[in-house]
Design a protein around this nucleic acid. Structure first.
Length: 295
DNA sequence: ACCTACCTGTTT
DNA sequence: AAACAGGTAGGT
């Protein structure tokens, strides 16, 4: 489900109410979703909520004295949702964790983790009880920071000249936060075919890709993310960017720019959509169009 | 670069 | 009944 824009909108929806509160009661309703490494998840004060790639990180501090610190790390994977509730309820099916958050002088609120497919995880990391998830520690740069520039992408392309653009954009060790939707949308905006090899890009194309990634993600964030089916923010609000998708999920439909029929195929193991006219595949060595199965 | 696994729900 | 789904980890 959620890629960078969706996770960022979850973060924002939690950021006004959650920091400053203490995790009091914690109900663990399913095994294996919340990895606590033997620590008690209650009694922590939440200092802040941050995002890194598709991970949410709640910075924690122990209430009684000491400078003990911890992190509650959340990855929603495909269908995970963090949801706020003003009253305790009979939690719906697929609710795996429920936490009561307390603040003196305010009403308690509940934060639940809901995930039909159970791919997502929560980790409580402190005092070496367990390592942070490797996916988090190996993340590449944030696409919406100045570090994401043409110089960086050119260097990545120099090191991995034969990786195809779709695979490159999906690689969280390169850029943190793009998934299937925004990889396709970025490549469309940049006018680059997803099967192009990174090493074959000219400097102008690298610059275009860099700008396209930034533009797509910023617009998606400001539109509340993309809701295809499951995604909502912490207040159960859907996104609106799905209305502005140019290629993702539009195979067989007319390109909004040129009217050509949007193609699709499997690339880097994922369904990939592109416009064959707006995103031409230059006929030169190394682009491997024969390996794409078109629909 | 490709597979499979992890899960459940929805669509074809 | 089968294919597919916004993601990642692990294996070959």
């Amino acid at each position: 489900m959620p890629e960078l824009p969706e996770v960022e909108n979850v973060r924002r929806s939690l950021a006004t109410l959650v920091p400053g509160r203490t995790i009091e009661a914690v109900q663990i309703l399913s095994e294996g979703v919340f990895l606590t490494g033997g620590l008690d998840p209650s009694g922590w004060i939440i200092d802040s909520i941050e995002r890194r790639g598709k991970y949410l990180i709640l910075q924690l501090r122990r209430s009684e004295g000491t400078a003990r610190e911890g992190r509650l790390i959340v990855h929603l994977r495909m269908t995970g949702r963090l949801l706020l509730h003003e009253v305790e309820a009979a939690w719906p099916k697929h609710t795996h964790v429920a936490m009561r958050l307390h603040l003196d002088g305010a009403s308690d609120i509940w934060l639940t983790y809901h995930d039909p497919r159970r791919f997502g995880r929560l980790w409580l990391v402190s005092d070496g009880n367990m390592p942070a998830p490797r996916g988090l520690s190996e993340l590449g740069i944030e696409p919406l920071t100045p570090a994401c520039d043409a110089t960086y992408l050119a260097e990545v392309a120099r090191r991995r000249p034969h990786v195809r653009l779709k695979a490159l954009l999906l690689d969280q060790r390169v850029l943190a936060g793009l998934g299937n939707i925004y990889a396709d949308e970025s490549l469309f905006l940049a006018g680059l075919h997803p099967a192009r090899e990174a090493g074959g890009l000219r400097p102008r194309e690298i610059a275009r890709l860099c700008q396209a990634i930034r533009d797509v993600l910023e617009k998606a964030v400001s539109n509340g993310g993309t809701t295809l089916r499951d995604y909502t923010d912490g207040w159960n609000r859907q996104g609106a960017f799905q209305e502005q998708l140019m290629v993702y999920g539009r195979a067989g439909l007319a390109c909004k720019t040129c009217g050509n029929t949007i193609s699709s195929g499997k690339l880097a193991g994922r369904t990939t959509c592109w416009c064959p006219r707006c995103q031409r595949l230059p006929r030169r060595a190394g682009n491997g169009p024969s390996t794409i199965r078109s629909a």
